[in-house]
Design a protein around this nucleic acid. Structure first.
Lengths: 337, 337
DNA sequence: CTGAAAGCGCTTACAG
DNA sequence: CTGAAAGCGCTTACAG
């Protein structure tokens, strides 16, 4: 690394080329009305100094930056999947991507992070933003697309068909013969958590199975939150024969709790998750879950944001993507008593 | 989303609070020398307007932003692992993270992307940057740490012990009885590619096995680049009994080619990769590979960058992290002819 | 075809 | 304790 001292500014280039910064700016941005010889001089000065325009200064002055933002509070496996989809959609679109993450990995991040980051970026840096699983409603002076929005959020959003996914899970368990099915819910401020619980309740009701409130634990999607809930569910004499956790992270913890208690999965207990994170396929036994293609969520959100920024979006402002039940080794018929 | 019109500026706050922007700035940044009543007025105006300072404007004016950057050209699985490690190291450090990625997913990205992005960010936005697998040497006016540097790069870097990892692979294969071992190399501009090939060569030499140049294919780490190379290697009558590919992506493609050709792995052919990406454990058969903990690479790079930015780094400027051979189902003793 | 000047939203000496 | 002014690195009317 050449410890380059101060960065090279447009002023340095102007001085070396013997022109004004206005002219350098014109050359850098390919504007018309600069003589060929001046262009050559400026180009050579730029080359010699290794000049590159400052993203910050440019974006402060210009309205359009051709940079899209994505705001997240952490990098989990699903974040990576989302990012892959976003990048694919942005490929050769002329947009670069900036991901902004705050210094807190999980758990203790302050409420409202999404709004703070969004505002700080969208002032001038980005032309629009994707926000991943915010706590609440978001507002912005530039277009926003939310992936996995808060309950009752009006912002344009992309989300999986959580209701259908959860319904499929419960129907799968019912089909195997389960009747006492526990549920570990996610953070209720998220629309996804609400829809998954609704799917659980309605599928049971549909089958004429009474919803037993004592079989529902209130988690928050954080894997750790599931530990005491799973323990409470599995410790009781009349424990459920199956547990449906509203996320894979919580389901995997449930698997651990079952192991601790000496309960065999799937022999004595079926466990199902939601998300289909890579770890789920590797679990022992492999986890039955619902795939919601985070990749596609990212892809569609970026596609929508691009159009929104260009002012040419025609579609609906809430996109719902299909989910798919993935049956693996953690579910089986309940043991006959 | 409240379509907020123009973003709220410090000027708006100043006007509403009936003070100058200088005073607002002092309140926002918690500087001393503002009367309690003024603070209260400004705070209430901020609250009322939902003001958040512009990252861009602040960073243009200030020397320090408490934002660290990471420059990458794509999001692959390993990128996500690196990011997790980086975030863990930055946790509660007071630094936020900005990841900058250009709009090209793989393959066709223009050479020199890393330098362009680095310069654009480090002018003022970030206090320092991590650069992921650059094509060449990088220079910057602020501290830089390179993960997986280019060959002969002098910049501070964090890298896996590729030499030891590759050596372990070849020793494993030799131990199984293999003597004709093919190699699919990575992009030679990267130090990692060079070291992996060196490990391959020296381990063979060490065991008194002649290095057959026709058994070496020149890939570039891009999975697709391995397809014709693997085919050439496996199509010949005197094909190798084992192939060591310098990345998991290329090894997985080799597995596919073998399948196409009706060659049984590991019965007729052993295949080994390098990286240990999640997909490798899921392959059929599961891939023997070298784990280089991208998580730790990210963690250590961020730790180093933090200290470098604070001017308190004492350690070596090139960190080499241990690798670990992971033996799975894709390797076995060669069939006796 | 080119430059001087204003201004994007902030922060920071400098006065008062 | 507070404000007017300069300036961070750019871009864009406005003159010439």
């Amino acid at each position: 690394m050449a410890e380059g001292g101060a960065p090279v500014t447009m002023n340095d280039v102007a001085r070396l080329a013997g022109v004004s910064t206005a002219t350098v700016s014109r050359v850098v941005n390919g504007r018309y009305g600069v003589s060929a010889s001046t262009i050559a001089q400026v180009r050579s000065a730029i080359e010699r100094l290794g000049y590159e325009s400052s993203l910050v200064a440019t974006s402060l002055r210009r309205s359009r930056t051709n940079v899209l933002g994505l705001v997240t509070h952490s990098f989990q496996s699903y974040t990576a999947e989302v990012l892959k989809g976003v990048m694919e959609a942005l490929r050769q679109s002329g947009f670069d991507l900036i991901v902004y993450a705050n210094g807190d990995l999980y758990g203790t991040y302050s409420e409202g992070w999404e709004q703070r980051h969004l505002t700080r970026l969208s002032g001038t840096l980005t032309d629009g933003c994707i926000v991943l699983t915010p706590w609440g409603e978001v507002r912005s002076s530039t277009p926003v697309v939310v992936i996995d929005p808060a309950k009752d959020s009006a912002a344009p959003s992309v989300t999986a068909d959580n209701l259908a996914g959860a319904t499929a899970v419960v129907e799968h368990l019912l089909g195997l013969g389960h009747r006492r099915i526990g549920f570990i819910a996610g953070r209720s401020s998220l629309a996804a958590a609400w829809a998954r619980e609704e799917g659980y309740r309605s599928a049971l009701a549909e089958a004429g199975v009474r919803v037993d409130p004592t079989l529902i634990g209130r988690g928050d999607f954080n894997p750790e939150s599931a530990v005491p809930l799973a323990r409470a569910l599995l410790d009781r004499a009349d424990r459920p024969t199956a547990v449906f956790a509203a996320s894979d992270g919580m389901a995997l913890k449930t698997l651990e709790v079952a192991k601790d208690l000496g309960i065999d999965v799937p022999g004595d207990l079926s466990v199902v998750g939601f998300d289909n994170i890579p770890e789920s396929a590797l679990a022992e036994p492999a986890l039955t879950t619902v795939d919601q293609s985070m990749y596609r969520l990212g892809y569609e959100a970026a596609r929508m944001l691009k159009s929104l920024v260009s002012g040419e979006w025609e579609g609906p402002s809430h996109i719902v993507l299909p989910t798919r039940l993935v049956i693996r080794g953690s579910t089986a018929s309940p043991a006959r008593p």
